[in-house]
Amino acid sequence: MVEFSGIKEIIKPENLVYKKTNIMTENTLSYCPGCGHGTAHRIIAEIIGEEGLQSEAIGVSPVGCSVFMYNYIDIDWQEAAHGRAPAVATAIKRLLPGKFVFTYQGDGDLAAIGTAETIHACNRGENILIIFINNGIYGMTGGQMAPTTLPGMKSSTSPYGRDVKTMGFPLKITDIVATLPGSYYVTRQSVHTAANVKKTKKAIRKAVQYQKLNKGTCLVEIVSNCPSGWKMTPVQSNKWMEENMFPYYPLGDLKTPEELPTK
């Protein structure tokens, strides 16, 4: 490993405050520089490690940029067909009710082709956790319009900007999920600053604990960036996200259970 270190005297095991969790594998992430996927992966891996869930966790990866998520987190994985992760996870959880079952899906996967699976899994109150990465674009296929693309936002299939009259409106699917009796905890977060990473980690930890109560579906939306798809630098994309995505997709809890988990 080629490293560049700060002050050597401080670098001692007893002074360690932050290190990549060993639940993350050593494989290099396939994501573009600055993409929020990596940070979201790491938070999930950290929680799996900290909550002692490595032997309990079964992840379902989507079709999209994060299709190879199974290469990065050291747990059992199933790779689902495009949009079908909630159906796949439904069966896993029904057949192995003691396990921690989660899906990780992008906006095209969860809110376009997989809308029915998302809504119905949540409506049945499946005891799974859905992590939803919303960056308003199809990243893997090269920046096409997504169901969550903002009005006026340019993409390769809305080159003059999304015209809501002909292309429809951005779908706030998380808001819809929050209205369903089957959903238990629904929140919207981001991972672009250290403070937001902490909040998101707290939210996912809560969702993991709630899932153990078997009271319904938990959904954590992470509003994220796509520097390549948005044609910006990573730093610009995070600023653009704050200014444009957050007003349309405001961060915060959409549904909080009254009953708190007892640990």
């Binding site: 401080i10 360690l16 932050y18 992430l29 994501y31 250290a194 990473v197």
Partner: peptide
């Protein structure tokens, strides 16, 4: 100051932080 903010936002998990 070893605040670890850099490590927390690093998408590729390449930063390790020490503090004393």
């Amino acid at each position: 100051i070893g605040c670890a903010n850099c490590a927390m936002v690093c998408p590729d998990g390449v930063i390790t932080v020490y503090k004393t």
